[in-house]
């Protein structure tokens, strides 16, 4: 099967899953007792005012009509209007997505560049001191609550030492880079705005490190064990027997194959992180999808909740798809099918 058919097949298979997700979210968000109309008009409003508001929001229609209307909108690419701030949900998401994307991407990037050498080292020096120390450090990462790390990092590097900037995406005094993507690093690179680049990079360091530490453990372990698998295979033994230097064996022959499962983890983590970095976002005042989602749920902002869910599911599934495509490139034995 060639790649195009593979991808298009997978895309079609996404549709029922997405549909299921919309139904699930829709049902869930509508069984919640609580009236967004009430929240909107303020606590001193009379019943009359609330009633009018409910009508305006279409909250009086029967559930299946509301869902049908929503689906029709969805097909037009319209996620509805946020009840909370009366803005199109699409617009809200479009503003927050780049922030989340940037943070997630950089975190995973840091994670991968640390995890690969560590994973190799621990595999080669299996059961050595290095292996144990790495294991403990990595386990500490996965076992410590994120908010704990976040506050500690801020306290040390921002408050006490002043090496790194505080919360937010960019310094207040620095205008955000001009550009369309909303990804500050990319935009500032494209517009050659070095000041914005420096500022946004520095703002990224702490939250990205905070997030990546959690995934470091998983990834290091994953690379370690797949390295071990590969190093036991016949072709490596043959290479060794032929007297190839160990360095060449590891980097040229073993690593590539050992990376296959790592790609899976990276892909899945990406999907998980993009909407799940809520705590990091709260602590670092990062205007991402996670905190938007929390606010929406607390306000019972149905259109926003659904918009978020659909977006996060889409990203998750896309990440999965990309992983599968990457498999084909990394491992010629795996065919797209």
């Amino acid at each position: 099967m060639n790649m195009v058919t593979f991808v298009s097949r997978r895309l079609v298979a996404m549709v029922p899953v997405l549909l299921g997700v919309t139904i699930l979210t829709f049902l869930l968000s509508h069984v919640i007792p609580g009236d967004p109309a009430r929240l909107l008009v303020g606590q001193k409003a009379s019943d009359e005012v609330v009633k009018r508001m409910r009508e305006e929001l279409g909250l009086n229609d029967p559930l299946h009509i509301q869902y049908w209307n929503y689906l029709k909108q969805l097909l037009r690419g319209d996620l509805g209007t946020s009840i909370r701030n009366r803005r199109p949900v699409v617009q809200d998401l479009a503003e927050r997505f780049p922030a989340s994307f940037e943070l997630t991407f950089v975190s995973l990037f840091i994670c991968v560049i640390i995890a690969i050498p560590l994973g190799i080292l621990t595999a080669v020096r299996r059961n050595h001191v290095v292996d144990h120390v790495t294991r403990v450090l990595a386990l500490l990462g996965v076992s410590t609550p994120v908010f704990w790390w976040g506050l500690l990092l801020l306290l040390i590097f921002y408050f006490r030492l002043g090496w790194l900037p505080g919360p937010g995406r960019i310094d207040l005094a620095v205008p955000p880079p001009a550009g369309r993507t909303g990804l500050y690093i990319l935009d500032s690179l494209l517009s050659r705005d070095w000041r914005a680049l420096g500022s946004s990079l520095r703002h990224l360091v702490l939250p990205a490190f905070c997030l990546s530490y959690v995934y470091l453990a998983i990834m290091t372990r994953m690379i370690r064990s797949s390295m071990l698998d590969v190093l036991n295979l016949d072709y490596i033994r043959t290479a060794r027997a032929n007297g190839l230097p160990e360095r060449a064996i590891i980097f040229r022959h073993a690593l590539r194959n050992a990376l296959v499962p790592t790609v899976t983890i990276v892909g899945l983590s990406f999907g998980e992180l993009i909407g799940g970095a809520i705590l990091t976002e709260t602590i670092f005042a990062w205007p991402g999808l996670g905190s938007y989602m929390v606010d929406s749920v607390l306000f019972l902002d149905f259109p926003a909740i659904m918009g978020c869910t659909i977006l996060v599911c889409l990203i998750y599934m896309t990440a999965n798809l990309v992983v599968d495509i990457a498999y084909g490139f990394l491992d010629p034995r795996i065919r797209w099918g």
Binding site: L155, Y158, F159, G166, P167, G168, L172, T282, P287, S291
Partner: peptide, 20 residues
């Protein structure tokens, strides 16, 4: 006048103390 959104109280306090 800049209203900067910082949800975490502890972080707000750090920023105030640092004069930011």
């Amino acid at each position: 006048v800049v209203m900067k959104i910082v949800p975490e109280p502890g972080v707000q306090r750090m920023m105030l103390l640092r004069g930011e």
